[in-house]
Design a binder for these strands. Structure first.
Lengths: 223, 223
DNA sequence: TGACTTTAGTCGCAAAAGGTGACTAATTCG
DNA sequence: CGAATTAGTCACCTTTTGCGACTAAAGTCA
């Protein structure tokens, strides 16, 4: 079902497709028939006339039938040798998919990040880069919002941030920061989730605001 | 189909070598003899058994005779078509070189960033990525310190930050942040630079400290 | 010499941002 | 009804940050 890369190109495009499954992050893996029963990231050989970004989206579409809601290149990975495609290097991408719409095509399976099967060293490096990149982009791009349905409660949003960051956040601080950023607006709907007070639903609706004007920071520990 | 010279790989490794020349940032360009008199970033074809990072360092050594003091991968660039190597994609790197030691080999020339000759679209994208990456790493890695001699005045350090960030900084705030970060220690030397009070010399000497524990931020403007 | 200029280095205030516990509100469960 | 549970807000305090104004030590020049 997948071709080996032609001899003219010696690189592959690999994508880490991430979604939030319940309380855990999960990524999509595949086990191609001819690939020695090892799980691998969805990948694709470059096609002429196709940009790298387009190729990563195509790889996602092959796996899920739809493009990711956000994607970014992670870089080129080549230092570890073994890769399913036997390409010399791989250009890695991360893509995010809301879980509601995330039913994989045959041959692809979601794996929780906490419990991944063995991957090639190179693909493991790509997955680690994906996690780091997501976390560092979290305050620069509305990533978390796009993993949620169009309307959501603030608790759901906070849980998504906690999931992606891998740490707990204080409720009041989270909401105050969100308030100050003018990123969400309330709807007039409320949702009762079993026990407890019903929560108001919000939607992502960013308002223009001036860019925070900060000086320098020295946020590194040593060399 | 167009016939291409046979090569084992269809990607190149390109490096943006940056230095501080007086009051300006400069990058190193070369004009290979057979390359239609266009200036280009130093680049290199991958060699078997050589990692990407090692290849970028070798490219720098070919250009300057010494390795950069710091380097980082920028990613893979392939969307713009024209590239001196005619490689399908290029893996871009940034490297920093202190200007004291930065005498280029024949064929290589420093160009101030403000006044670059025309480059291929792809290499222009790599240069822009280099600038962005430097600026975002500035508070995460001791980049600016390594562009300075082993001992330096705090004004020189601030000027280096201003040069790399492309904006002015407030003196008192800069020094306070630096103080709090335990990154420099004073020497007992002072330097008199023409008129004005002599400045104390400092050296980079980071002390261990606990990582700042911050919550979330929403630092993006819109989508 | 003494006023003026220039660069270095520091202080302290006011405002903004951030951490956190405790409070009120609305619902379900038994 | 009262306890439990989840949502939402407040108030207080600490830390961080922007910034103007100050002191210090040199050179310049009349």
């Amino acid at each position: 079902m997948r071709e080996r890369p032609s001899r003219t190109s010696s690189y592959s495009i690999d994508i880490v497709l991430m979604t939030a499954m319940g309380n855990e992050l999960a990524i999509l893996l595949t086990r191609g028939s001819a690939e020695r029963e090892r799980w691998a990231l969805p990948w694709r050989a470059p096609q002429t006339g196709e940009t790298l970004g387009a190729a990563s989206i195509r790889a996602a579409e092959d796996a899920l039938g739809e493009p990711p809601i956000w994607a970014e290149q992670l870089g080129a990975f080549g230092d570890a040798k073994r890769h399913p495609s036997e390409a010399e290097i791989s250009v890695g991408f991360v893509g995010l998919v809301p879980h509601q719409t995330a039913s994989p095509n045959p041959g692809y399976t979601w794996f929780p990040m906490r419990d991944l099967p063995p991957l090639s060293p190179r693909q493991r490096a790509i997955v680690e880069a994906a996690t780091r990149t997501i976390q560092s982009r979290l305050d620069q791009a509305p990533i978390a919002f796009r993993l949620l349905p169009p309307t959501f409660t603030l608790s759901e949003l906070q849980q998504m941030y906690e999931l992606l960051l891998g740490k707990r956040l204080h409720k009041a601080s989270f909401r105050r920061a969100l308030q100050g950023a003018w990123l969400v607006e309330p709807t007039d709907e409320w949702r009762s989730e079993g026990r407890g007070r019903p929560a108001q639903l919000f939607r992502y609706a960013p308002k223009k605001r001036r860019r925070p004007h900060r000086g320098v920071r020295f946020d590194f520990l040593y060399p």
